[in-house]
């Protein structure tokens, strides 16, 4: 092992992996909650929907579109003031969280919205005919019926999110990205970059596999 990768310090590789997993996990939780909330808001306020509201829909939709279009690396720079305000520092894993979440949640919100749109209108109508309240329709019809899309959308989002943690690493967020860039690329230690990449790939594969598995399990269509 040490002959194959002479420059790899396994201890710091492990620390970096944990940092990446930490960033991924925390931002995934927030992305999930924020994405579903925004996705629901978009779906419910769209024209002809349960809480139709043109102004809310247009405002949220524009915000989501703007943040979805900004390249992540620019988003990090733009968000530095906000980051400093929230986490009081601009370097380190926690400092990367706001930009990662703001970069992923709008993307996920759109996927959630699309998933909700796929719920059969007839089923919503059947629930209304049975005297369901709007809240009951959201909790008992919309969310359960679109669960496969919600899960598979989260898988896609998570993979994009991991690539964002690596990118944030280049500007000092820590984790495997920082290791690959600072210790690997800049110090001409290609084996370090290589091992960091492999670990990222393994994480991505595991997420993809688990995501597909859960999607299949909840999809009873």
């Amino acid at each position: 092992m040490s002959q194959l990768f002479p420059n790899v310090d396994w201890m710091s590789m492990w620390t970096a992996t944990v940092e990446t997993l930490y960033m991924t996990f925390v931002s995934a939780v927030f992305t999930f909650i924020l994405g579903i909330a925004l996705g629901l808001l978009l779906f419910l306020t769209a024209s002809g929907s349960l809480y139709e509201n043109k102004w809310i829909y247009r405002t949220v939709s524009s915000i989501v579109n703007v943040f979805r279009s900004i390249p992540f690396i620019i988003l990090i720079i733009l968000l530095i003031p906000l980051t400093v305000l929230i986490v009081r520092t601009m370097i380190g894993a926690s400092a990367a969280l706001p930009s990662i979440i703001i970069g992923s949640a709008p993307f996920y919100a759109r996927l959630v919205e699309i998933g909700l749109r796929e719920v059969d209108k007839g089923v919503i109508e059947a629930a209304q005919a049975m005297g369901a309240t709007r809240a009951q329709i959201v909790w008992k019809v919309l969310l359960p019926e679109s669960l496969p899309s919600i899960v598979s959308g989260m898988t896609v989002t998570l993979i994009a999110l991991i690539s964002n943690t690596a990118m944030a690493g280049v500007v000092g967020a820590g984790g495997l990205g920082t290791l690959a860039y600072n210790d690997g690329f800049e110090a001409y230690k290609n084996d370090v970059t290589f091992v960091a990449t492999i670990i990222i790939l393994i994480i991505v594969f595991i997420i993809q596999f688990a995501g597909d598995l859960i999607t299949r399990k909840v999809d009873k269509r």
Binding site: D120, V123, A126, P144, K220, R221
Partner: peptide, 13 residues
């Protein structure tokens, strides 16, 4: 008032 539909409109989940 109960209602049934041409395409059944069951919850597949």
């Amino acid at each position: 008032i109960g209602m049934i539909f041409q395409h059944f409109n069951l919850l597949w989940s």
